[in-house]
Design a protein around this nucleic acid. Structure first.
Lengths: 130, 130
DNA sequence: GTAGAGTTTGACACTAATGTCAATGTCAAG
DNA sequence: CTTGACATTGACATTAGTGTCAAACTCTAC
């Protein structure tokens, strides 16, 4: 799969995919002609990275996060103290972000319901599942 | 309360408080000498705004959001169709952000536990409640 | 082989969010 | 009255994340 295909599937412009790679958040195989080559596995990763960046995490942190996720997935039994501290320190701001966004989501939902705009809610939900 | 006090309490630098005000996300009373003056009520608002911005929402949207929250709080019985659509459209990306962050949070937690770094977890939790 | 679509890298530009600094004003304390 | 801490506004700089463009290359299809 080439970069354009992945871009279409993930909705992440090629420009950004390259950027994330350059920042060390992503890796890509290369074909004999130099083109980047992606597998299914990469698609997930790209969506994940893009999602975190959009959620306001600086790429520097995203990198630490996904590296930890990789380690977790590989059942790494150990984790350097330094990394553990870094991750733990990130936990708090992340939870604050979640709380903040959750509150907004709830408020919006309630508000739309109370002002009789369930139609919009439904339409949004549909596009979500699509 | 002057801007410096609020800044200390919210951990939001004065520079940003002024910036948010300039972007129309905040309002402040003025004292006779021109200094901005804040009440308890404003402290919440500032934290809320800063939280949303940190969560990756552009100030333009934060503005819409908090205006809706205000309207909801005042029990506004109506809501222009246009605003409803805007809010509904925002719901999806917000939920995606929440999902993305939640997943990271869970992964981090699990990982730290499995690698025997509960100590860091606890320390983070403490600072959270502090 | 030529055209066209997609790729590469690299440069430049732009925006939003922040940091920082300068010049000036206010006010409380010594 | 002077000093020091904090405020004001406004300008400028920086950073991160993106958009966009150019020059050159690859490959497919005609």
């Amino acid at each position: 799969m080439r970069i354009g295909d992945v871009a279409r599937r993930t909705q992440v412009p090629p420009r950004l995919i390259r950027y994330y790679e350059q920042q060390g958040l992503l890796e890509a195989d290369r074909m004999s002609n130099g083109y980047r080559s992606y597998r299914e596995e990469h698609v997930d990763r790209i969506q994940r990275v893009a999602g975190l960046v959009q959620a306001g995490l600086p790429t520097r942190l995203v990198k630490v996060l996904i590296e930890a996720e990789d380690a977790a997935a590989h059942d790494e039994p150990t984790c350097p103290q330094e990394t553990a501290e870094l991750l733990a320190a990130e936990l708090v701001p992340i939870e604050e972000r979640i709380a903040c966004l959750t509150r907004s989501r709830d408020t919006i939902r309630d508000y739309l319901q109370r002002t009789n705009h369930e139609a919009e809610l439904r339409r949004a939900a549909e596009r979500h599942s699509a």
